[in-house]
């Protein structure tokens, strides 16, 4: 699997996700600078976490307008898989690749903690290594992860099975107790209609080694390798 990781001014988890991809594939992904609208052909495009443009104006808003994102939109339309993590999720929603938006956490504070996620479906190139209903533990680290979409969009997301992960309790109960940011319907990650674009707030890339946060996030990368190699 050949992957590209985008880098914007203010990106800061690009190294983490590159490290995770290298760990799983044995191959360092290509790092693509935000001004580079013409990068090599890849099997996967990753929009990493961070504070692109300082999160000024709105998280992800300015990065979404960069030359590289115009190219990403083009390739996504051709079916090239795109993974947006945290700030990357914010960027891909701002770019219109995913419905909805990420608002300020309901408690107004940044939160960095392990959370539990319920995998909603195994039927995607991102989640094929998990079982539907499986509970995994990965960390979040954000101040704007509160997923919001209007009622129609929410209904469509549910009806079409576009919800990838929901926050839950360690036992798998999808209720307020496991929701770190006030997200609608506990949404932690969503797909586009074709399930070739995934955006999620949690950081699977920080849960790929036993000593450093556990290995529950590794399945996501292994699943992609299996689907895209």
């Amino acid at each position: 699997m050949k992957a590209a990781v985008l880098v914007f001014p203010g990106s800061n988890r690009e190294g983490d996700v590159a490290q995770a991809i290298e760990l799983v594939t044995g191959r360092r992904p290509t790092m693509v600078w935000h001004g580079d609208g013409d990068f090599e052909k890849v099997d996967l495009i990753v929009v990493p976490g961070g504070f692109s443009y300082g999160d000024y104006l709105r998280c992800g808003a300015m990065a979404a307008q960069s030359p590289v994102m115009a190219e990403v939109k083009k390739r996504a339309a051709q079916g090239v898989p795109v993974l947006g993590i945290c700030n990357g999720f914010q960027i891909v929603t701002e770019a219109g690749l995913l419905p909805g938006t990420l608002m300020r956490n309901s408690h107004l504070k940044f939160v960095c903690a392990d959370v539990h996620l319920k995998v909603e479906t195994s039927q995607s190139l991102f989640t094929n290594r998990y079982q539907a209903g499986q509970v995994i533990k990965v960390p979040v680290a954000h101040a704007e992860g509160n997923y919001f979409a209007d009622a129609d969009t929410m209904k469509k997301l549910e009806d079409r099975g576009q919800i990838a992960f929901r926050y839950c309790s360690p036992e798998g109960a999808v209720d307020g107790s496991g929701n770190p940011n006030g997200s609608s319907s506990n949404i932690a990650g969503v797909f586009n209609e074709t399930k070739t674009v995934l955006g999620l707030m949690p950081h699977p890339e920080n849960a790929v080694e036993p000593m450093f946060g556990g290995t529950d996030g590794k399945g996501l990368f292994e699943g992609m390798v299996e689907a895209l190699s």
Binding site: L57, A61, Q65, T93, G100, T101, F148
Partner: peptide, 8 residues
């Protein structure tokens, strides 16, 4: 294009 997110 930029200043507002018309979703919200």
């Amino acid at each position: 294009k930029l200043l507002a997110n018309t979703v919200i």
